[in-house]
Design a protein around this nucleic acid. Structure first.
Length: 880
RNA sequence: GCCCAGGUGGUGAAACUGGUAAACACGCUAGAUUCAGGUUCUAGUGCCCGCAAGGGCUUGGAGGUUCGAGUCCUCUCCUGGGCACCA
């Protein structure tokens, strides 16, 4: 009877040993090639880590252990994204100080990560809310400031009346606060911005240089939103003003039969004719009170009003009406558009509704020849018509008649417009500057002083950090000002320039500031005189493998890329992209019972899931009384408020951390969502025990010799080398599930060769083969089940952890199959299989297939038209 | 509406470049073994017809290309995610 797999003892023992021996310490400036592996640093929440979080941390841990075994000097650090609103909101809810909460929660996270065998170098732990960290966040703010990339502007900001704070554009979803779903209002407020728009082109272009999922790159491209076209100036008839518009289709200028200005456009006031003024004013006023949701609803019929003013189409010379309509936005382009109803569906609908002329620019020979005949706009196709300009035109007759409706024509038209001084080729971006300031307590204070005499003065570097004061009251003030504004000792200071009385800036930086550079700090986390030593940054960075959830696909990643480029430009970094390779893990979903909400009912979650929702978690005491037709079943992300959290600790207690790890690696491809199942863990546990039994029994076998079953030995050895190859490729490609499947196949094969219950001397296995398999298997399972692997490794008499052991190599000669099965098809239908030597030629393969009695029988009396041979794979006989 | 990712057994899934569809697991069925056991082992398990040999069908649906399609092309339906009057 073999020893049982005592995972609780083994795991506790090895965790203690790894810690005591500092097994996962990364070595600065080592001779070895480095691999910097990083997961998005978490915000430590009171809810603790669930197995859902492990879906991120376990596969990456397996990968980084694998890299270490492959001879890389691995940096695998962990830290806490502790500043920001999640932490502050939780502190407010619990009536506690975030300063005390963060270390407690971090300790709990650290404990759980240790429990699942994660290989972090804890000597590099960082906490973004500590002065020794945010001092450098402030330092970077000053760097941006001095480079002209941080500025203060008073703009109407999004104001959430419930959170009593300003929101970035990115934090507003469909006109509502992304956190509490309250309708967002507009409020003028001086705010700090980072000029990320200066980097739009580079942020777009450099996406080509990095290994990221295509979907994420695409989302970034759309966020940046580059569009190419031309600025065109329209003269206002009878006035000196001109209206500048941006268009992606300057080639359709000949069909621009009206213009539309956004209601907020400054020219509306100036150009509206007296007799239309009252109506236009009323329309503008109505538009300003409408919520964004109403205004952005695409279903709503377009409304607008004629200003009575006329513009002159520069190429046709025709006067065209100028309208005001709320579907044109002041925040994009120039706030005004030229409308071409013949070739833009939106303009077409508007023109039809208000009886505006529709002129074709492109037409098909057999298509409609006039606006009246059209049922809808023709955005593409056709060839350009011939136009004769009216006397008011600023250009001569255009030479484009007959050209196709494509980008080449657009480019020709732009060149021609430039030549005649009517338009200029231009690129617009949807990307807007990054609103960085928050009127919140829990963030890094912005290191600026406002002086009556000197104005805005940056805090000198030697005076950093600007410490966040300890306070009792850190709730948002509700006046729109930061709680810091209520602390005289913080606010009043001396001007660094003139020494006179001055006021500190009281806004803090949003959490994205801290997370835009933290990956640099891990290179040198305790440095007190710089954000990091240049040599260490040059050695460790950029991050080789960065892994996290797709929910950060745009903002965090874009901001981190931006900061990196700024630092690169400042000569601080040799590289300009922070994350060479990015991967996104899937989410763990857990089954949850809920009910339909009552009218107007809101959910009030502990950690997310607040607001208006279409279902509400059923409390245990409601389960009986809830009418069946009101019950809903949902697979949702684990969270405390959903009551569906499974903790790693409970699973590790029952099945062991190694079984949990194997389960998470095996269930599904890394990037897929998975539905949590206890049974799945049980299956993983079975494999773990099975592997353990085989190894333990194989160790006893080594000491004796017996007549060997040579053929089986060759098979077992071949399988071993094939498995090394598969697992190596699988880990490198983040295909953990198939790598684990390969391990299972290997263990199944080894059981056939030497059953785990074989008595010493009774089986026919070759000790040399068993020993080779044992060594390799222990190393192969190490990234998956490191505790078990280290225990077995030490029992094999090896020193230290498998973490520092060399990853096994496969011998292609041993892995190669001697004979292969070739499939024989007749007219594409599988009819027989024949065995041939592995390297058999096309002729031999064909001959073997045709020699099959079954095939001969099937072909009797038929004519063979063709025989397709794929050596090593199949033969397909095409017959009548 | 637009963009992205997906639809494969009872379940999670596998199939790198077109070449044996369903590897590996979970579950289920039968047998053996042991026990205090949620143990272990062996065999079976896509669907339909058939006692069997064997045959037919099958990767959301419909067409197409090919000797051959889960994989390529066209259309279409469904699911998940993102963006949304962007000029």
């Amino acid at each position: 009877m073999d020893e049982r797999y005592a995972f609780r003892d083994i795991e506790a023992r090895w965790q203690a040993r790894w810690e005591a021996e500092r097994t996962f310490r990364a070595e600065d400036l080592s001779e070895l090639p480095k691999h910097y592996g990083l997961e998005f640093f978490p915000y430590p929440s009171g809810a603790g880590l669930s197995v859902g979080h492990c879906r991120n941390y376990v596969p990456t841990d397996a990968y980084f252990r694998f890299k270490s075994m492959c001879g890389f000097n691995v940096l695998h650090p962990m830290g806490w994204d502790a500043f920001g609103q999640p932490a502050e909101n939780e502190a407010i809810k619990r009536g506690r100080n975030p300063r005390e909460m963060v270390p407690e929660y971090a300790a709990s996270y650290r404990q759980t990560l240790r429990r699942i065998g994660a290989s972090y170098d804890w000597s590099r732990e960082i906490d973004s809310s500590r002065p020794d960290y945010y001092q450098w966040t402030q330092w970077f703010f000053l760097l941006l400031y001095h480079r002209g990339l941080a500025y203060r502007a008073s703009t109407p900001i999004n104001w959430c009346p419930a959170c009593k704070t300003g929101l970035a554009n990115e934090e507003v979803e469909q006109g509502r606060c992304w956190r509490c779903e309250t309708t967002v209002e507009k409020r003028p407020m001086p705010q700090w911005y980072f000029r990320i728009t200066d980097y739009a082109e580079r942020l777009l272009a450099d996406l080509e240089t990095i290994d990221w999922p295509d979907g994420i790159k695409q989302m970034q491209r759309e966020w940046i939103g580059r569009s190419e076209g031309a600025d065109v100036d329209f003269a206002v008839a009878g006035r000196s003003e001109t209206i500048r518009v941006f268009t992606t289709r300057p080639d359709t200028l000949w069909g621009a039969t009206f213009m539309v200005l956004a209601p907020e456009h400054p020219l509306v006031e100036l150009i509206t004719v007296p007799e239309r003024r009252a109506e236009v004013d009323a329309y503008v006023r109505r538009a300003s009170t409408e919520t964004d949701i109403d205004r952005m609803s695409a279903e709503r019929a377009k409304t607008g009003i004629d200003t009575g003013a006329r513009a002159v189409n520069p190429v046709t010379g025709e006067p065209i009406p100028i309208w005001v309509a709320d579907y044109v936005l002041m925040g994009y382009g120039t706030g005004g558009i030229m409308a071409v109803p013949a070739h833009d569906q939106r303009d077409f609908e508007f023109a039809r509704r208000y009886g505006i002329r529709i002129d074709l620019v492109y037409a098909h020979p057999e298509g409609p020849r006039s606006g009246e005949e059209m049922a809808r706009a023709l955005p593409d196709g056709g060839s350009m018509l011939d136009f004769t300009p009216a006397p008011g035109a600023r250009t001569p007759k255009a030479p484009f008649a007959g050209l196709p409706n494509d980008r080449a024509t657009v480019r020709k038209v732009i060149a021609w417009l430039e030549e005649h001084g009517v338009g200029t080729g231009r690129v617009y971006y949807r990307l807007r500057d990054w609103l960085i300031s928050r009127q919140r307590y829990w963030g890094a204070p912005i290191p600026i002083v406002h002086c009556g005499a000197c104005g805005e003065v940056p805090v000198p570097e030697r005076d950093l950090p600007v410490l966040l004061p300890d306070v009792d009251q850190y709730e948002p003030s509700g006046t729109g000002e930061s709680p810091l504004a209520a602390i005289p000792a913080f606010v009043s200071t001396a001007c660094p320039a003139c020494g006179g009385a001055a006021r500190r800036e009281t806004d803090t930086m949003g959490g994205f500031a801290c997370s835009s550079w933290y990956f640099l700090r891990f290179a040198d986390p305790h440095n007190a005189s710089a954000f990091a030593d240049r040599r260490l940054v040059d050695y460790w960075l950029p991050v080789d493998t960065y892994v996290g959830g797709a929910e950060h696909a745009v903002m965090h990643l874009l901001y981190a890329r931006f900061w990196t480029k700024v630092m690169h430009d400042a000569g601080l970094l040799a590289f300009s992209e922070p994350f060479s390779r990015l991967r996104n893990q899937g989410t763990v979903l857990a089954y949850t019972l809920g009910r339909r909400p009552r009218l107007g009912e809101r959910a009030d979650g502990e950690d997310g899931g607040e607001g208006i929702v279409d279902w509400i978690v059923l409390r245990p005491d409601e389960r009986e009384s809830c009418p069946p037709d009101q019950v809903v079943f949902r697979w949702v992300k684990m969270s405390k408020s959903k009551g569906n959290v499974v903790t790693p600790d409970e699973i590790a207690e029952r099945y062991g951390a190694d079984s949990l790890r194997l389960y998470l690696l095996f269930v599904a491809p890394f990037e897929d969502n998975v539905q949590w199942s206890d049974e799945g863990v049980h299956g993983a546990h079975r494999f773990a025990s099975r592997a353990w039994r085989w190894c333990v029994s194989a160790m006893r076998a080594q000491t004796r010799s017996a007549p060997a079953d040579a053929a089986r030995g060759v098979r077992a050895r071949r399988k071993l080398h094939q498995t090394i190859e598969k697992v190596t490729a699988g880990l490198e490609g983040f295909r953990f599930n198939t790598a684990a499947a390969a391990l299972m196949e290997l263990v199944n094969e080894l059981y056939l060769y030497r059953p785990a219950d074989a008595e010493p001397g009774a089986d026919a296995s070759d000790p040399a083969i068993v020993s080779e398999a044992l060594d390799a298997l222990v190393l192969l399972i190490a990234p998956f089940m490191p505790h078990m692997a280290d225990e077995l490794w030490s029992r094999l008499g090896r020193e230290g952890s498998t973490y520092r052991a060399a990853w096994p190599r496969h011998d292609p000669a041993v892995a190669a199959e001697e004979r292969v099965t070739v499939v024989v098809q007749v007219n594409g239908k599988l009819r027989d299989r024949v065995e041939v030597a592995a390297g058999a030629s096309e002729e031999d393969t064909r001959a073997a297939a045709l020699a099959s009695p079954r095939i001969a029988e099937l072909l009797a009396g038929r004519t063979v038209r063709k025989v397709v041979v794929v050596p090593g794979r199949l033969v397909n006989v095409v017959a009548n």
